[in-house]
Amino acid sequence: MGATFASLSAIEVMAWGLVFFASIYLVFGGLTWLLTRHLLPWLGIGRILDPRPLAPGQLRREFSLSAVSILIFGTGMIFPWGLVQLGWATLTPHASAGRIALEILALMIWNDVHFWINHRLLHTRLLKRFHLPHHRSVVTTPFATYAFHPVEALMLGNVILLPMVVHDFSFWSLASVPVFSLFFNCIGHANYDLWPQVSYSHWFAASRRHHLHHACYHGNFGFQFTFMDRLFRTRLNADAAQPHIDRHFSQAATRARKSSS
């Protein structure tokens, strides 16, 4: 498959990239929405994390921003393709299953490091204006996963470039990065705790941690794992969102009393 990828033209690479990113966004996002909004609550499995309603027009805005991100990610496949064409990177053919598994594990760890660094930068005074469009989804949905400003999409979308120049990966290992990234991202943005029984520190509790990030804005900058937030002391307390949620319903009750009087 690596040889096939290298033999494609630039236009073909970008076209396939657009199809690939649009497909995984719609499939993973749609399935996560159906599971967490309908099937799992009906079965009594898991729980909603933030009971506040979505903002008016939120889904439309998320789809609009995500369409731009998909355009950037899809056409951006020209960059890893270009590294191969220039001889700056090589795709290893006929990699064993064990090697691919180890490469995917290494890329998952690198993805968390890369995400934390870029996410933390996006919360600085210099770059926060590029991150605010994503944070307009205070109560998150799976379709917020790609709802980025173009600058943020460019920052997060370059995750495989550095690994490619320091190691000869299998094509399948590199292709797994957007797949597992979007899969975990959909869960993280689902506003649904699929495993309430696990501890807040467990990597299965990533949806809890990312829900807190959106509800509180600061803290919990990591992706799926917790080691970067632990290392840099940016992890939020497990109940950090509760005052914000309580304030919302208190204000809503006050408005309701005033309107009825």
Rank of each mutant, 00 (worst) to 15 (best):
L127Q: 03
L236S: 15
D193M: 03
L91H: 06
H149Q: 06
L65K: 00
T226V: 02
N158A: 13
W81T: 03
S259E: 14
P53C: 11
H211N: 11
S9P: 13
N185G: 09
P80E: 07
S259P: 03
P142E: 11
M77I: 00
E12Y: 12
G2D: 09
S66G: 04
P56G: 07
A97E: 07
A238S: 11
G82Q: 05
G219W: 01
L83N: 02
L39W: 15
K128E: 15
A6S: 15
T75D: 01
D50V: 06
P163D: 03
A101F: 08
L162V: 15
G30L: 05
H211V: 00
T140K: 06
P41F: 15
H131M: 07
I45K: 12
L162R: 07
H167R: 08
V179Y: 03
L40D: 05
L154V: 05
G188S: 13
S181K: 05
H94W: 13
L161R: 07
Q224N: 14
L127K: 02
L127F: 09
L102R: 10
S250F: 12
H131L: 08
F232I: 11
L127M: 09
D239Q: 14
L236K: 05
V177F: 04
D239A: 14
L102T: 12
M14K: 13
L231K: 09
V151K: 03
G222R: 00
R60Y: 07
A95W: 00
D193R: 06
L194I: 09
H119D: 04
A238T: 05
G222E: 04
R208C: 04
D50M: 10
P133T: 06
L86E: 11
M77S: 10
A6E: 15
F73Q: 08
Q58R: 10
I109G: 06
F171N: 00
L154W: 04
R235W: 05
A95I: 10
V179K: 04
D112T: 13
T75H: 07
A101I: 12
Q85E: 15
V139T: 11
M14E: 05
V177R: 04
